[in-house]
Simulated assay, not measured.
Amino acid sequence: MKTFLNLGLCLGLCLFALLAGCGPKSTSTDPAADGAPEKPRVALIMKSLANEFFSTMAKGAEQHQAEHSDQYTLVVNGIKDERDLSRQVSLVEEMVASGVDAIVIAPADSKALVPALRRAKQAGIVVINIDNQLDQDILQQEDVVIPFVGPDNLAGAKKVGDHLAKALEGSSNKVAILEGIRTSFNAQQRLLGFQAAMDEAGITIVDSQSAEWEMSKANTIASSMLSEHPDIAAILAANDSMALGAVAAVKTAGRSGEVKIVGFDNITAIQTAIREGKVLATADQHGDQLAVFGIEAALQEIKGEPVSENVETPVDLVTSQTLSTP
């Protein structure tokens, strides 16, 4: 009998040890228990990576993460073209599902992305808006506050427009504007900046159309503008891709050197065009640092340190005088 009792006791102790061994172990599921807390994951969601401005933005963010690899990990995303809103919304939802700690986003549309970003914030994710500011009325309707980290696009466009106005003194006072996507706040602000500069100088805007940030569409529209208004003295493009489209249109029309062109973004190709005299000026909003500014704000919020609702970043006029020799 004693033998059976001892055997039963041994079996019982073994079973208890086995069950205890199957229980959760904090050391395997909680990195902090090993003195190595898990680094926050930051998702960068941009517009079209086919646009050099955003590929430059991505490289700047990746370089920053490499230099601060002990502080956070980075997930970089972009969409096929500027109008692919549904894909950008899907990217936000995918990042929420993957459990990132923060989303830094350059929205393709100032209104359409707000509901998805509200859901991200409700899931406990830090959200920082860069480049293109979200619509304040929609943010209020959705009862959500999302900090904006980026340049004053109106002021930047005004600087470019003022420089053009000085260059046009004594020539035709008629110009045309190539706008960005009209539902984007940065497109609206750049248009207002261009308009303000032209109004102050007494220069007439004879045509203003949206080329949706795209070079090929800008080429087509600019060609039509030049045909309909042969006395146009300049074209103001709300980004450099559209400015390059205008350069091609001016060349095709046989008016190279006659029609002045300005842009916005300071991509590599536009710097070359400025040096060659094909483009008069552009605005540099420091694309390689813009995402970095947003990432740093996100990391600040993750630490529990509040970020201002509007953090203004630099935007500078770029001309042949300001460009260094390559």
Rank of each mutant, 00 (worst) to 15 (best):
I138T: 13
S98Y: 00
N51P: 03
L168A: 05
C22I: 07
R119P: 00
Q122W: 10
D137N: 13
I270Q: 12
V262M: 06
G161H: 08
D30N: 14
I177W: 03
I138G: 00
D288P: 05
A58Q: 06
D162A: 13
V92I: 11
Q88W: 04
A246D: 11
A176H: 01
T3G: 07
F264P: 05
D316T: 14
L290Q: 11
H64C: 07
G35D: 10
V247Y: 00
G277K: 03
L134I: 11
I79M: 08
E258I: 05
S224C: 01
L13H: 02
T325N: 14
G150C: 05
D30K: 06
Q285A: 02
T268E: 12
A211C: 08
A97R: 10
A112Q: 12
D152N: 15
K111L: 11
D231E: 15
Q285I: 01
D207F: 07
A253W: 03
V292A: 04
S320Y: 04
V89G: 01
G12M: 13
I261Q: 03
Q271V: 06
T319W: 09
I270A: 13
T322I: 00
M225H: 12
I302H: 10
I232P: 08
S227K: 12
I261W: 05
K25I: 08
A116Q: 07
I235Y: 10
V247K: 02
V42E: 01
V92L: 04
L299A: 02
K111A: 13
L113I: 06
E276R: 12
L44E: 01
A106D: 02
E93D: 04
S86L: 12
G12W: 09
D30E: 10
E142T: 07
P230G: 08
N219Q: 15
S172P: 11
S324T: 12
K39S: 09
K278P: 00
K251W: 00
A50Q: 13
L91Y: 01
D316S: 15
A187Y: 08
Q289K: 14
L226E: 04
G23H: 05
V206W: 09
V145S: 15
A281K: 07
K159Y: 10
C14I: 15
R255Q: 14
S28P: 00
T322H: 05
A291C: 08
